[in-house]
Design a protein around this nucleic acid. Structure first.
Lengths: 205, 205
DNA sequence: GTCTATAAGGAGATAGAC
DNA sequence: GTCTATCTCCTTATAGAC
């Protein structure tokens, strides 16, 4: 076969591993299934990776770097904050429902990381990213709806990220579309307690 | 070795499997490690189980039946509803923090179930139990704090269960005790919008 | 650098003695 | 019913030709 730079080969193997894990789970991602997916020989694998463990670690690191959270708010001015938040949560939910196995895969890889002392720090990085994404979205939502949050932004972001986490995990378990929709509705209403009109510097709750 | 009834042997093997999975993950629960944990021979395993798959299925079914959710509310009358809910969420959080690997194990087993068509229905049962537990707790909390919920109980329960799910998963990932505490505080306050004093049949929001 | 061939061991499952 | 011994397959990883 062609002479491929080591870095490129590593990348191709990581991508192949992701495809296998997505399809059949982490356990199914043996060196053999991965090289088959990548169209390589087993020896080529060991030329660029010392071991299967090293591959899995690179897979998890790649996931952490690339987590693109479904972060499209339908930002229509004129909507009140509850409506804007609800629309954002709905968009997130649709993203999960459109590709459930992606979430299962992410959960599997996180569990794997949590059991490997060498990887245990990676989920923390990932959750930092989640939180920052949440913060950005919450700021946008507030701006569009003409409110501000009367709680520290990082607290609001953590609340929001926690809730979306629960939303996807619970739906993966119960597959109850309507319950998810109603829960989103309630959460959007509830979280609006922390929004105050941007004019008056109130201090409610 | 002693002559053990098949049912009892199956049970012992399921318990041994749980111990192994708790310690080292589902992947580590091979027939050999499990029988070693149970102090049996490999043949004894296959005398009562057709295959490893059957064992893992029984393990997951056992988990679903036995899920005892940490459901102790510190129910002190006189506390307002936000405080009561917050105390309940704190108790749940303490339970998770006291034994993180138990949660990791539950996540692993759920992921496993989600990938096995024969087991895919089990998480739904489990989540039905979660919801019913949540409903019971929310009713108790309301009673103790002299309020009622102005939303359907099953909606409130699903919201509550979703949030606790997110709480544990997020904490497993970020291990941020203080953020969890603040998120609990905010959630308890937010969810209180749906509580109305028990005297007046109001209809807010 | 990339390949085929193979070593070395772990896995699930069974045979057959007791 | 329970055991030891074994079959067969699959795994990770390496050797050595090209």
């Amino acid at each position: 076969m062609a002479r491929i730079p080591a870095e490129q080969r590593r990348h191709a193997l990581v991508q192949a591993a992701l495809a296998v894990i997505y399809r059949d789970g982490v356990a199914a991602a043996t060196t053999r299934t991965v090289v088959a997916e990548a169209g390589m020989s087993l020896a080529s694998f060991h030329y660029v990776f010392d071991s299967r463990d090293e591959l899995i670690r690179e897979v998890i690191a790649a996931i952490v770097e690339d987590v693109e959270v479904a972060a499209s708010l339908s930002l229509e001015p004129g909507r009140d904050i509850a409506e804007t938040v609800r629309n954002g949560l709905r968009a997130y939910m649709l993203h999960v429902q459109a590709d459930p196995m992606r979430e299962v895969m992410l959960n599997e890889l996180m569990n794997h990381a949590l059991r490997d002392p060498e990887l245990a720090h990676l989920p923390q990085i990932q959750y930092r990213i989640y939180r920052r994404t949440a913060a950005t979205l919450l700021e946008l939502a507030a701006a569009v709806s003409g409110v501000r949050w009367n709680r520290p932004m990082d607290e609001m972001a953590h609340l929001f990220a926690t809730f979306t986490d629960g939303l996807s995990l619970t739906w993966l378990g119960d597959r109850d579309d309507e319950a998810a929709e109603r829960t989103i509705e309630l959460a959007a209403l509830a979280v609006s307690v922390f929004a105050v009109p941007i004019e008056q510097p109130a201090d409610p709750v």
